[in-house]
Design a protein around this nucleic acid. Sequence first.
DNA 1: ATAAAACCTATTGACACAGTAGGTAAATAG
DNA 2: CTATTTACCTACTGTGTCAATAGGTTTTAT
Lengths: 133, 133
Amino acid sequence: MFSTKGRYALRMIIDLAEQPGDEFIPLKDIAERQGLSKKYMEIIAKELVHGGLLAGASGKHGGYKLTKTPEEYSVGEIIELMEGSIAPVACLADNAEDCPRKASCKTLSMWEEFYEIERDFFFGKRISDLIRS
Amino acid sequence: MFSTKGRYALRMIIDLAEQPGDEFIPLKDIAERQGLSKKYMEIIAKELVHGGLLAGASGKHGGYKLTKTPEEYSVGEIIELMEGSIAPVACLADNAEDCPRKASCKTLSMWEEFYEIERDFFFGKRISDLIRS
DNA sequence: ATAAAACCTATTGACACAGTAGGTAAATAG
DNA sequence: CTATTTACCTACTGTGTCAATAGGTTTTAT
């Protein structure tokens, strides 16, 4: 189950993609439009900047803006950045240590199969696919 | 990310499906074969019995056994019973209250689309598909 | 009566989630 | 140069879930 962090990050990027022009947009505006806590969004925005998905600018007329076009954002990269890993089971996550039962595991191939379907889905979905509706 | 409860339940049912005969099998045996805590497995077994996926018998020569054939078990029903819901987002879970942003939500249809793919996958997968390997 | 097993209630430590609080640094406008 | 606006930073907190563990009671076969 994806957490609010991933979902809010998605909403934030969609919100920015919908704004015309190329100016930096204050978090205050985004939070108000989305009805979310500005304080909590700060944490999310910070991680998005750190991950290169948003650009931030301090000071007056500062705020956030996209670093690329909506077509270039996949949903997968956004939620993976926020959630850490979208693997269905711990043993398939990046940081997982080798499972000793790996060779005899009856379910591993099923999880791998699903993981691939999941990644195909979310990395195939683009922000541009979501804003026209 | 699926928890150990769902994964252990799956292993337990696979383990039972692999045993010959129709006798009740003590949890002690299953836990030893699987290298899992018997105490923790008790909680899982109890929920599986409660959900009708296992039959339990107390007393000497008691234990657990399947209530149907391996072909009749879908992976989906097992993990859904254990995890509560396999919905990708909270608003799609059974118990979810109506979201006020539902009508304008840009991501809802994407989550629904994924949820359907997920259910098709896990409810289509049968225990019998996993034991031959 | 005894042993083996499920069944039951309660508790625990660790951790993540979903924020909140309060400040510092940077940039612009007047 | 000062005030304002904004991002950026560290820390804290309450709530809940996860993954067990502990210690019993009941049921059943021998």
